[in-house]
Amino acid sequence: MRHIISILLENEPGALSRVAGLFSARGYNIESLAVAPTEDESLSRLTLVTTGTEDIVEQIIKQLNKLIDVVKLVDLTEGAHIERELMLAKIRANAAEKRSEVMRLAEIFRGRIIDVTDSNYTVELTGTGHKLDAFLQSLEPGDLLEVVRSGVSGIARGQKGLRV
């Protein structure tokens, strides 16, 4: 099962390496990991996506909680939640037909073209991982020149929030 674990982490040097080190030392998977400071400058928020059996995910959560720098965490996949990922994709657009096709696709997926040259477009797209995958699959083979994905960020729906 895929789980999205959201963590409030002390904004200390080395805190991120404790989380990453835990996963490598214990042989857990990290599919993606996104981290940035929060409105409280002493805290970072880290969102990681992992897969494993229920037993393994239970251990992952316990082991994460044991890290001194982890202040609080939540498994977003336990309840209703929203997940988003940002993608920047550089796509071949060197002929009029291609250019209009990429524009049309970007529009369908509610993306934005944020850079234009005579040979390519760069498209910005947010959504779930599935949506981003679907966009990439709809491109013609060989047209995708480069892709950057932020990894998943997520938040619980409704009143519930992860805060100190």
Partner: peptide, 14 residues
């Protein structure tokens, strides 16, 4: 030192 000992301490500080 903090990196080397990280997997074998309860916690460490620089």
């Amino acid at each position: 030192s903090v990196g080397i000992t990280r997997p074998c301490v309860k916690h460490n500080f620089l």
